[in-house]
């Protein structure tokens, strides 16, 4: 098989950053904060690159919908093995307005223009945790979907055999191509982008398309009422001896009698 794979990657606040809520409660602080590629997208990308190394795929293209800074993420994707990249650009001010539906629509437009056999995305992004881009895209394209993949193999005669992680076990399915796949945590271990590869990635082609030119309407479908920090855990207390512990437990109603 020589599949063309489109991998959706998202620029998110780095997983190691302690996220802070903006004082006006409209979102989280992103200015001057370290960003990186969504870890689940890294896994999707790694799998696509591995498929290329196994000669299952012929080309891996990274895709992102995002502000001008998303270019870094695409360069990083190319350093990790993507052959080229497509950047659907939106103004920096609109970044917070992007929803999974917009991304799915943008990918749909790209897939309609160029032929792709597989669209691979991470199972969810670690910023909004929506987990919707994959399924929405499959719906828009009317393609089969294989979500939460933990193993991807050639299924023969234009299919892929995908092992999925589901509650309480594994689910093995065969999907006809073209299909939408989403990557789970245990699919593989993403590689590290080495310094020479980062240099080489600067020379790889990156297509920039304005979201407006694709006809994508960024009108939000949802309204954010308030973003709040999780409640702080209250400090515990010490008890001197067993009788005091039992008494306290009785007070709280954990022990009867």
């Amino acid at each position: 098989m020589s599949l063309r794979i489109l991998v959706g990657v998202k620029r998110v606040v780095d997983f190691a950053v302690k996220v802070r809520v903006k004082p006006d409660k409209t979102g989280v602080v992103t200015d001057g904060v370290q960003h990186s590629m969504n870890p689940f997208d890294e896994i999707a990308l790694e799998e696509a690159v591995k498929m290329k190394e196994k000669k299952l795929a012929s080309e891996v293209v990274a895709f992102t919908l995002g502000g001008p800074k998303s270019q870094e993420t695409l360069r990083n994707a190319m350093a990790k093995g993507a052959d080229k990249a497509i950047h659907v650009e939106i103004p920096e001010g609109d970044v917070a307005k992007v929803e999974p539906l917009h991304v799915a629509q943008a990918i749909q437009k790209v897939v309609e223009k160029e032929k792709f056999d597989v669209v691979f995305v991470g199972k969810q992004a670690i910023d909004d945790d929506a987990s919707q881009t994959g399924p929405l895209l499959a719906g828009l394209l009317d393609w089969p979907q294989a979500l939460y993949a933990s193993k991807v193999e050639d299924g023969g005669s234009g299919t892929l055999k995908v092992t999925r992680e589901i509650d309480g076990g594994l689910d093995t399915i065969k999907v006809k191509l073209p299909a939408v796949l989403s990557a789970d945590l245990r699919l593989n271990e993403p590689r590290y982008a080495t310094l020479p590869n980062i240099m080489k990635a600067k020379k790889k082609p990156l297509d920039k398309i304005a979201a407006k030119d694709l006809g994508i309407d960024l009108t939000p479908q949802t309204k954010i009422l308030e973003v709040a920090e999780p409640p702080v855990r209250k400090a515990g207390g010490f008890v001197a001896d067993v009788p005091e512990l039992v008494q306290k437990l009785k007070e709280k109603g954990f022990v009867k009698g």
Binding site: A16, I126, L185, Y192
Partner: peptide, 13 residues
């Protein structure tokens, strides 16, 4: 770096 990221994801999700 790999392990750190993997552990963080595992712990969170």
């Amino acid at each position: 770096y790999k392990l750190r990221k993997y552990r963080a994801m595992k712990q969170r999700y």
